[in-house]
């Protein structure tokens, strides 16, 4: 028994509530978390309320004022058909912030279920499902998503389900690893000796102990969901025109970039980057806070 770090365990008497408070408290004292969550909240507010306060209708074209540089009337300029970039950028948060969290939820729930089952039962169940998951993982996510979206045709529900299912193997892999560690602990054996059923052991005994890694995985996945969905929109298989969307806007306008019309893509680029970085700063801080 090494005594090098004997004191990481809190002394008896510290309540769990105090620990939970500790995590939240630590988070609120972490600058990177505060920055991340502020960015996320900003875009969430835009997603919900932007349509009611932006200066222009984001769908309204104005063929007399195409490709106008930023000015007092159009803060971020106008695009190729004269739509107000500022309005479209703010409202553009709506599509991505609807699809990405839903897709993350689908992926996390499905992945947790698969991970619990494969990790708990092991044996041939694990071998067969594990092999299938490995096949899924041997294809780049974006290509799998592309394949299914071509076959089924892009639509919002399809994108949610496809991205969710593409993420499920990744979540499942994390959950399975966590379950395998728990599986060998004696409390699982104790429950089996009491005659508890497999679903009970998985959901009541094991699940609470692997929630922290699932939460962390979920937040990390949210970042990648935004990444993936934005990329799909950019490729033309995600959000469909004329809905305001950052990835879509970049795809539509990067052709005119070389002509010097930088404002048509720069703000969408910055918006996408800021949202993803924000989510990841928050996710990483959460991971650190839970690991402490």
């Amino acid at each position: 028994m090494s005594e090098a770090l004997p004191l990481t365990e809190p002394a008896p008497g510290l309540a769990r509530e105090a620990r939970t408070r500790g995590v939240v408290g630590r988070l609120l004292r972490t600058p990177s978390f505060l920055i991340g969550i502020t960015i996320l909240l900003f875009w969430a507010v835009c997603a919900v309320f932007a349509p009611s306060f932006v200066p222009y209708d984001p769908y309204a074209d104005d063929l007399l004022n195409t490709l106008q540089p930023p000015s007092a009337e159009h803060w971020f300029g106008t695009d190729q058909i004269g739509r107000d970039v500022f309005s479209r950028v703010l409202v553009g948060a709506r599509a991505i912030l609807t699809i990405a969290p839903l897709a993350t939820l689908v992926g996390t729930v499905a992945g947790t279920a698969i991970g619990l089952i494969t990790g708990y039962f092991g044996g041939w169940v694990d071998a067969i499902i594990g092999r299938l998951l490995e096949v899924m993982l041997s294809l780049p996510l974006i290509i799998v998503a592309l394949l299914v979206l071509v076959a089924l045709g892009p639509s919002t529900p399809t994108v949610v389900v496809v991205v969710g299912l593409v993420f499920a193997p990744l979540v499942a892999r994390t959950v399975r690893a966590a379950v395998l560690t728990e599986r060998h602990l004696d409390y699982v054996a104790a429950a089996a000796v009491r005659g508890e059923s497999a679903p009970y052991i998985m959901s009541v005994e094991i699940l609470p102990n692997i929630t922290p890694p699932i939460i962390v995985e979920g937040t990390v996945r949210l970042g990648y969901a935004i990444f993936t969905i934005a990329s799909l929109s950019f490729l033309g298989f995600g959000v469909q025109p004329p809905t305001p969307d950052w990835g879509l806007a970049i795809a539509e306008n990067y052709g005119v970039l070389i002509g010097g019309f930088w404002w048509t893509v720069v703000f969408d680029t910055a918006a996408t980057a800021s949202l993803i970085v924000g989510v990841n700063l928050a996710a990483e801080s959460l991971q650190r806070a839970l690991a402490e």
């Binding site: 970042g223 990648y224 990444f227 934005a230 990329s231 950019f234 990835g247 970049i250 795809a251 990067y254 680029t269 996408t272 980057a273 993803i276 970085v277 989510v279 990841n280 700063l281 990483e284």
Partner: peptide, 10 residues
């Protein structure tokens, strides 16, 4: 960490 999450098109 920040660079890892920037989509390639961005």
């Amino acid at each position: 960490l920040s660079l890892t999450v920037i989509p390639e098109f961005v």
